[in-house]
Design a protein around this nucleic acid. Structure first.
Lengths: 145, 145
DNA sequence: AATGCAATTGCAAATCGTTTGCAAAAAGAA
DNA sequence: TTCTTTTTGCAAACGATTTGCAATTGCATT
């Protein structure tokens, strides 16, 4: 279990290398993604992008998210009962704890859990391609002194 | 990690006790749920119900699923990229391994993983209300002799 | 068995998040 | 600048699920 290391890779370079055009909407969306620590959904990204350039459409946000997801630059998470939320893929792998009261997302990682998952899959005759581990909880109230 | 024990509780009794009417559609849907080991989605339940009584509507399936979920009689799972799938809640708690090629769902349980989850949440100052652990994988090809 | 009323239904229309067709606009190579 | 291709915005389509409403049903009461 550990904290996320900040990281800001150069996606424009990667996109160019893949023969994908760097457009104004894409640059703006990319800046938003690399500049945030949270897990915004498409609508939030749309609004932040719109604050920079009124003409960017929601479809373009969705299209760009799909593009970046395909490149492995971002991860898409479908947490319970809400729109998909995105985060930059640069950090190392982690799972999520969702605060049921605030919607906050806390990242964590456990090598031991990952190892157990592999073991279980192996025993069942499977190879894990990916997994989803989400804890939904509420903040423990501070124990009175 | 263990197998699921079969179980067939009497939901009609429970429903009556909760002041909820036993209608023909509900009885049929309930029979389908208690009579299957798999994880059908609403459309599948609708079709199976329709085979018994042509007049049952998809809305009623959805309404009944919500009702039963609220009573704790069934669990709803939103696996990746598909409609919600349901299963009767009677067995003991388990997580799911989804076969990416066939869509099959294999149930498993690990006390050690559950314990680790609690530990992680506790260290982060949270109490887990529920969690979601899904492994997505493919069948390992049999190792040649 | 007939009555009455609230709960439940089927249907169609509405909803939400997301995707898509299309003609117009912009990127990047020549 | 011109050309070709990709990308865009818009509106309409989409799939899963929910909802409003009038008609039907369950069932407790006579």
């Amino acid at each position: 279990m550990n904290q996320r290391p900040p990281h800001k890779p150069d996606y424009e370079r990667e996109l160019r290398r893949a023969g994908i055009r760097i457009t104004r909407p894409r640059r703006i969306i990319l800046d938003i993604l690399t500049g945030t620590e949270d897990h915004p959904d498409a609508m939030e990204i749309f609004q932040r992008a719109n604050a920079v350039d009124k003409s960017i459409s929601l479809s373009t946000v969705y299209r760009t998210m799909k593009l970046l997801e395909g490149m492995g630059a971002i991860h898409r998470h479908a947490f319970e009962g809400g729109p998909a939320r995105f985060e930059q893929a640069s950090g190392d792998h982690h799972d999520h704890l969702i605060d049921l009261d605030t919607g906050d997302v806390i990242e964590f990682h456990s090598d031991r859990i990952e190892a157990l998952q592999d073991e279980i899959a192996r025993e069942l005759g499977y190879e894990i391609v990916h997994h989803r581990l989400e804890l939904y909880g509420r903040r423990k109230r501070k124990r009175r002194a």
